[in-house]
Design a protein around this nucleic acid. Structure first.
Lengths: 290, 290
DNA sequence: ATCGCTTTGTGATAAATTTTTCACAACTGT
DNA sequence: ACAGTTGTGAAAAATTTATCACAAAGCGAT
């Protein structure tokens, strides 16, 4: 298996450690839009990556080329060679791995799950769920089960920044009846329940429903029994080549929802989010935007 | 949905009849090595096609471009668009929603993240990581930070079923120096660290490294400083149209890894999974799945 | 906080390359 | 022979690249 061909993309990645911050920023920009961005002018590339012209010149030489034109020529050669080789490549995600590799099989399955899930989702229901969950006048309960509690926690963590007045409930814990004493009509429950569905979760949902709370349910394609009580039900495809189910699609929906709610509540969230961005600045990885 | 996207290749072919002999020869040469040959200098292209410089200039203008640079720019644009996976392009994910809806925009971004992440991953490194993490003779430590602890927990939960001899460490907790007393040479640390990177995590990694443990790092495209100590580094794209970063791609990799390790260890895992299911049945935590 | 050290951007400039265009001669096919 | 096409060589214009010195900013270590 003498795969001795090193692409320029590989070269850049291997040298990533020897590069300085601005150069790394540039390198990542080249990879982001590979190889098209490297085929324009030096000046355009610099602008596109948000670095100065000398930085580009310096990096190209660090990579071992005599000058930018030589670097470009190498890119073109690679592009020329790439088109010649059989097509089989474009079908795979991890190009360096055969298509039967688990990386490619698993990713295929997840992408297909995403496609199916999204194609069956009702955007109006989704928007409505966002409005409910973002409504600060309603107390928000987030409920996860044995496996799904990580998703619940992820949502909880972010919602905590966006709005006050929320509670994280684990159905596996025995403290949850406690929380329910305060549930009021109009409160919102976000419940995660995928197979195998949990009895505790169903019980909790029943109590919440009885008290007049609205339920937003994240479940799988077979739908947890909770869905009969749910005001909005978001069902996800979760089957992958594994002994377990995939939470990746649900994660995608959760993150999308976080982003949507954050936009809805922007006026009130703004300050909290800006604090967060200050924290990003401290990484010093990024140039300050002015 | 009358997509009238005409590639430059199409354009050239359609104008083929209006071109003169030398121009046609040139055009065919461009198509022969498309699009690489069009991305060099005008002179090079002329030489390559065996025509004169003015012929190139004349044809480019006949095709409707103001000059050669404009023609080149168009080619680059096309290349840029082409690289995007067919599945990621021109497809609306939530068909019932407009393409500007957050559901579609966010999913686009995540798919693109997956594509870029997978294309840059080294499958050998991945496989090696799986073998390390699945090796029951090494104690396994799983480490997450403020945001990433949910991912760490997700991995931990599954690994708990697959193999014994593992520990979940939260860097935000102050109990972690405790765990480190027992670390031995050859033990394995799986560390999650995305921006902003946490000092605690780095310190922990340094201690682990000093004690001779191997580190598998899940990080973002800018790579946590831990990567200098890491035996294997898996970097993910995480940028989405949101105030926060996306963990979906990392989740995908984690799940893929779980699936791969479970296959490696299937003989020993089998029993453990069955035992676990028995236990759940007995506690009647779950309803039977039909 | 302060001090060195490295990195980075700026603006300018010179060098190199590339593009564009020209007039004219040579060539082509009819 | 004629009309249209093509190549030549040149030169001007435009663009691009490479570099420089210096100042500003960032970083790490006290």
């Amino acid at each position: 298996m003498g795969e001795a061909t090193q692409t320029i993309s590989d070269l850049i990645q291997s040298k990533l450690d020897d590069l300085t911050r601005a150069e790394r920023q540039l390198a990542l920009s080249v990879l982001q839009n590979y190889p098209a961005s490297g085929l324009g002018t030096l000046t355009a590339l610099a602008q596109n990556a948000g670095v100065s012209v000398p930085t580009v010149a310096r990096m190209v030489q660090k990579l071992g080329y005599k000058g930018y034109p030589e670097f470009q020529a190498a890119l073109r050669e690679e592009l020329k060679a790439q088109v010649k080789t059989p097509i089989a490549k474009h079908e795979t995600w991890a190009e360096a791995a055969p298509s039967e590799h688990i990386l490619n099989r698993f990713t295929d399955a997840v992408i297909e799950n995403i496609r199916l899930t999204l194609s069956q989702i009702d955007p109006d229901a989704f928007d409505q769920a966002c409005r409910l969950i973002g409504d600060e006048s309603r107390h928000l309960y987030i409920v996860g089960g044995r496996i799904t509690h990580t998703l619940a926690e992820y949502l909880f963590m972010h919602m905590q920044v966006i709005r006050p007045n929320l509670t994280h409930v684990q159905t596996t814990s025995n403290t949850w009846p406690h929380y329910l004493l305060n549930v009021q009509e109009g409160d919102v429950f976000v419940i995660f329940d995928v197979r195998r569905y949990e009895n505790n979760t169903l019980k909790l949902a029943e109590i919440a429903d009885k008290r007049g709370a609205k339920i937003v349910l994240f479940t799988d394609q077979w739908r947890s029994p909770v869905h009969q009580l749910a005001h909005i039900c978001l069902s996800n495809r979760i089957v992958v080549p594994s002994a377990w189910d995939s939470a990746a699609t649900i994660m995608l929906l959760v993150e999308t929802m976080i982003s949507a709610i954050q936009s809805l509540n922007w006026e009130t969230t703004k300050e909290r989010v800006e604090n967060l961005e200050d924290m990003f600045d401290q990484t010093k990885l990024f140039r300050k935007f002015t």
